[in-house]
Structure formats: structure tokens, C-alpha cells
């Protein structure tokens, strides 16, 4: 929805649309109002003494629509701000990162496809690594160090210290550790391994990227 009605406006700007931003904003509000009215169809408005579920939403949608019309007219009559250019890279990677986190944090089954709950140990780094690519300045090495240091920090903070019921690692992982180990022991061991890996990467890369990697560690303290 967002992209479809953006493009034509850019081209039309020289024509009869003077304030492209207002014009597009007006269209957006009209679409929203239409969506609201469409979703509320069939629900009763009721009377004032017993207002139905649809009364307020319907009138709000109409109000939003009227604002949309006003804005649209404004965009046609008055010179105003143009639309800013936007890139796809940011939104795509950020949304992918969020979806990756949502899909891996706990068991997922979507239709025939299913994933076991992988927990924070996978979801956290995925969010950082995928999300980090949203900027062209991304450097893989930095992101790996960041994820290897922030994830154990969160695991210890949420899973160990605060004891929150947030999944931390896949159950299959318990098989890798001696039978006597409790969940907390495994959590701590994993965190230690990850932190150590981060440290090693940080130290080996130090000669080349001294200043840049420094900051990655600083975030960990926050």
C-alpha cells in the first residue's frame, strides 16, 4: 500500500499537484478512512442511549476522510513540501530482522512449516546481524562481535538475574552438556563461550580496526 501510491506522485509533481507531500498524505488518510469504514461494515451503530460498537469508529473514519480531502485539496492548490526520497534497503532488512527474531524466539508452526523454539541465543544474533545490514556501512565483523557480546549480556540479565520466562536456548542444547547441569549452568556456560568468542574476535581484529571495535564493547555496558 505504502509504495504503490508514492511513485506516480513524484512524476506528477510538475503537473497539477503542487504540494506532493500533502497530496499523498490526503490519499493516505482517505485510504485509511475507507479501510476503517470497510472493516466496520455490518456492525450496528446503535442509538445514543445505547451506542453500538460501530458508532464512534464510523464517525472517526469519516472525520479522518474529511481531513484527507482537505489535505488533498491543499496539496492541489498550495505549493508545499515534496516527497522525500526513500530507499528500500533500510525497511527490508529491519523488517526481516524483526521477523527472524519473532520466528525463532519460540516454537513456530505456520501451515506445514515448523521450527523448534531456538530462544534468545539464536534470535538475538539474527536480529543484530540481519538488521545491521540495513545500512550500507555495515561491517560483518563488527556486527558479529556486537551480537556475541550483547546476546550473552541479555541472556544473563533476563534469563539468569531476572529469571524471566523468555526462552534462552533450544532444548536440544541440553543434550550437549553433562546430565547434571541445570538450565542456569548451561545458560552461564553458553554466555561465557559467546563472550569469549567476542573477546577473541575483538583482540585478533584489534590491530586492523582499533577504533571501530572499541565502541562495540562499550555498548555492552549499557
Amino acid at each position: 500500500m505504502s509504495h504503490s501510491h508514492e511513485r506516480p506522485k513524484e512524476q506528477e509533481r510538475r503537473g497539477f499537484v503542487r504540494g506532493a507531500q500533502d497530496f499523498a498524505g490526503g490519499i493516505f488518510l482517505l485510504l485509511l478512512a475507507a479501510l476503517g469504514l470497510w472493516l466496520m461494515r455490518g456492525l450496528p451503530q446503535g442509538r445514543l442511549s445505547a451506542m453500538g460498537p460501530a458508532m464512534l469508529p464510523d464517525w472517526l473514519s469519516i472525520g479522518v476522510g474529511l481531513c484527507g480531502v482537505a489535505l488533498l485539496v491543499n496539496g492541489l492548490l498550495k505549493h508545499g513540501a515534496a516527497l522525500e526520497r526513500w530507499s528500500l534497503r533500510g525497511p527490508v532488512f529491519i523488517i526481516l530482522a524483526i521477523l527472524a527474531f519473532a520466528a525463532t524466539i519460540r516454537p513456530l508452526s505456520l501451515g506445514g512449516f515448523s521450527l523448534p523454539g531456538l530462544g534468545m541465543i539464536v534470535a538475538g544474533p539474527l536480529a543484530i546481524l540481519i538488521g545491521g545490514c540495513a545500512t550500507p556501512e555495515a561491517r560483518l565483523r563488527e556486527l558479529v562481535i556486537l551480537s556475541l557480546s550483547l546476546t550473552p549480556f541479555c541472556m544473563l540479565l533476563f534469563g539468569d538475574m531476572l529469571n524471566l520466562p523468555i526462552p534462552v536456548f533450544p532444548q536440544a542444547l541440553t543434550g550437549l552438556f553433562p546430565a547434571g547441569w541445570s538450565q542456569k549452568d548451561i545458560l552461564r556456560a553458553c554466555s561465557a563461550i559467546m563472550a569469549a568468542a567476542a573477546l577473541i574476535m575483538f583482540l585478533t581484529g584489534r590491530r586492523r580496526h582499533t577504533t571501530k571495535v572499541d565502541v562495540a564493547i562499550e555498548t555492552e555496558q549499557g
Binding site: 521450527l115 523448534p116 536440544a172 543434550g175
Partner: peptide, 18 residues
């Protein structure tokens, strides 16, 4: 799949539940 992912993390998976 879980085991494969665990292995992918660089850990030798035995898969045996305690």
C-alpha cells in the same frame, strides 16, 4: 533441525535428552 542448528553454532550435537 534444532540439532542441525546447534551443530551450526559450532557445538558437537549428541541430541540425547537427559
Amino acid at each position: 533441525l534444532a540439532i542441525a542448528l546447534a551443530a551450526g553454532l559450532g557445538l558437537a550435537a549428541t541430541g540425547a535428552q537427559a
